[in-house]
Design a protein around this nucleic acid. Structure first.
Lengths: 125, 125
DNA sequence: AGTTGAGCTAACTTTTGGTAAGTACCTACC
DNA sequence: GGTAGGTACTTACCAAAAGTTAGCTCAACT
């Protein structure tokens, strides 16, 4: 089949398939961390900002917008002053979050392996 | 604990933890596709290039080098003419590949959901 | 009155990614 | 025998994306 989005299944190996866009969003640097973090419950914008080391406000806002558009994150504004915005995962987002958190945990668990491999590689070149 | 790489576990939520580098490599646009593809067996450079729609030679080479350095991909050169280079997954690479392929498959299976969510979002803005 | 905090957005800079070409060697074709 | 094509890259260049900085509004706190 071709990579047409006719309501059937996608193919990430086809360059023109819309799954590529979603894959890029979900696997983007900050999205993996956001999805993993929101798995533990609803959070506010600045809570997320503090929890995820190194994100700028711009990138966090951008990431959250992309995830919201893809239907993974729910954004709820409380029209109070000062502004209060809650972010949580949708049903779809929970599924995505579990996958990426699994990956993150696996990487964390195998850090020594990576460090060792990098050392060996670098000493050869 | 801090994000020091003293041989223990990492923390992807700390900006200075070396797991961040590995996470970035594994979740980079082309690495997810390379890892998923090599799960089916050893492949040559240009086989990969043809199998993964849209990769440039530069990016494929760069991606493979990063994955090799992290100990996920094994590169074997056969000193013949014309050049012949085989790429395969290490034991570590197989584990990573299974995780990212799971993610890819999940995205492919839920494409209609994403397309629908995007449509709803765009019609509101 | 000045600072802080919330949640952004716009302007600007740096980094990354993509395109195109070059390299070295051999094979097959016309 | 000159040309085209295949293999596995590397290098130079440019556009697109990511990242940094500053600014914004409104209110509370000092």
């Amino acid at each position: 089949m071709t990579a047409i989005s006719d309501g059937r299944r996608g193919d990430v190996y086809a360059s023109d398939c819309p799954t590529r866009v979603v894959l890029d969003h979900v696997t983007s640097r900050w999205a993996t961390l956001v999805l993993g973090m929101l798995l533990d419950g609803t959070m506010r914008f600045s809570e997320l900002r503090r929890a995820i080391g190194g994100v700028s406000e711009k990138m966090l806002a951008q990431t959250l917008q992309a995830l919201e558009r893809d239907g993974l994150v729910l954004r709820e504004v409380r029209p109070v002053i000062p502004p209060h915005v809650d972010y949580s995962l949708t049903e779809l987002g929970v599924q995505a979050g579990e996958q990426v958190r699994g990956l993150c945990r696996w990487i964390e668990d195998h850090l020594p392996n990576f460090l060792h491999a990098q050392g060996v590689y670098d000493s050869r070149s």
